[in-house]
């Protein structure tokens, strides 16, 4: 045994943690950078599938993409989990209450990306914001950005399309959230919020501050929770994608979802809104469609409408919003998504 092991001070524990983190990072990097070689070796040497066959390219794609995306997810979800421990909904509400509209919309959209959010708590969050004096439009900017611009969507986009598409998604997602919130604010729809919301008396929960070990624990919990939940979707989605990769002919989607078809964007949004899926399930399919000649704008519009506007969330929000406000909300956000779809089809 090592004699140094007897140092039982705070610092030896700290060093242990740092060493463990460094070791884990190193293992992660080595594995990640060798995935392509590994997947080729597994497919063609170990499973001895003939190179160049449809089946071979499908299997290689699957064996490469699944661990790659999952490894990226683990790393990013952990980091975001730690960042999120700094942004509780209570703190975000404090930052947003009493803000002027334009500035408030921008801030709300940005905070929406880092504040922990689950569509199941959309209602208490909405009431909490509105009764604390956060303007209605600013609240909507938050409610649009929180589900749409999330780390799982960004990781998948980065992993399967590269950083340019991920950045485009991030920026346009924020813009849609900012602008649609601002538009809803301008429309003065406060009276279309259910009356009882404004009569609700929101209490103030105490804001507790966390220690670093607690933040790391939250990061780990986020990995267990999120990656534990989405990995089957990632695997299933990539399997479908792999099938399409290997078998569906090149440019098959071009006639249906290509740039030439003007109606493809509205159709993609119309199909996307009632669909309910998380980013993890939808993106690998989207990637396969794109590879077969679908236009990027159309595909992004489809994805955004699936993630940002979902039927279950609309049903939940009906408890606090009257039908007209719901319809406006869906209409404004869908219009934003349409514009983004057309814009990308035009530019790229």
């Amino acid at each position: 045994m090592n004699a140094k092991g007897t140092e039982s001070t705070c610092c030896s524990r700290l060093w242990q943690t740092i060493a463990a983190a460094a070791a884990l990072t190193a293992v992660w990097l080595i594995l990640y950078s060798n995935l392509l070689t590994l997947s080729k070796w597994l497919t063609y040497d170990l499973l001895s599938i003939s190179e160049g066959s449809h089946f071979g390219s499908a299997v290689e794609f699957f064996i490469f993409e699944v661990p790659k995306v999952l490894m990226l997810l683990v790393a990013v979800v952990f980091a975001v989990g730690i960042i999120r421990s700094f942004f509780t909904p209570e703190r975000t509400r404090k930052l947003l209450s009493g803000k002027k509209e334009a500035v408030g919309n921008v801030l709300a959209a940005l905070l929406g990306t880092v504040t922990p959010f689950c569509s199941c708590s959309a209602v208490p969050l909405f009431i909490g914001f509105v009764t604390a004096g956060v303007p209605l439009g600013v609240t909507f900017s938050f409610l649009v950005s929180a589900p749409m611009v999330n780390e799982v969507a960004l990781v998948l986009l980065f992993g399967l399309f590269g950083w340019k598409v991920a950045l485009l998604y991030f920026t346009t997602g924020l813009l849609i959230a900012i602008i649609s919130g601002w538009v809803i604010g301008r429309m003065k729809l406060e009276r279309h919020v259910e009356e009882w919301v404004y009569q609700a008396i929101a209490g103030e929960a105490e804001i507790t501050s966390l220690s670093w070990p607690e933040r790391v624990a939250q990061g780990t919990a986020a990995v267990r929770d999120i990656v534990g939940k989405v990995w089957p979707y990632v695997a299933a989605g990539i399997a479908v994608g792999a099938g399409i990769h290997g078998y569906v002919p090149e440019n098959f989607m071009a006639s249906i979802m290509g740039k030439g078809a003007w109606w493809s964007v509205p159709l993609a949004v119309a199909i996307g809104v009632p669909m309910y899926s998380n980013a993890a399930g939808i993106i690998p399919v989207v990637q396969a469609l794109l590879a077969k000649g679908a236009a990027l704008g159309t595909v992004l519009a489809f994805m955004m409408s699936v993630i940002a506007l979902s039927l279950p969330e609309i049903v939940i929000l009906r408890k606090v919003l009257k039908p007209r406000l719901i319809a406006t909300f869906v209409g404004v956000v869908a219009t934003g998504i349409l514009l983004v779809g057309y814009l990308f089809n035009m530019l790229l």
Binding site: P89, E90, R93, P116, F117, C118, C120, S121, V123, P124, L125, I127, G128, F129, T131, W196, Q199, A200, I201, A202, G203, E204, A205, K319, V320
Partner: peptide
Amino acid sequence: DYAKIVSFGVMST
């Protein structure tokens, strides 16, 4: 009940 939940100052369930 949402009104009651919010009265505790809770925004995430």
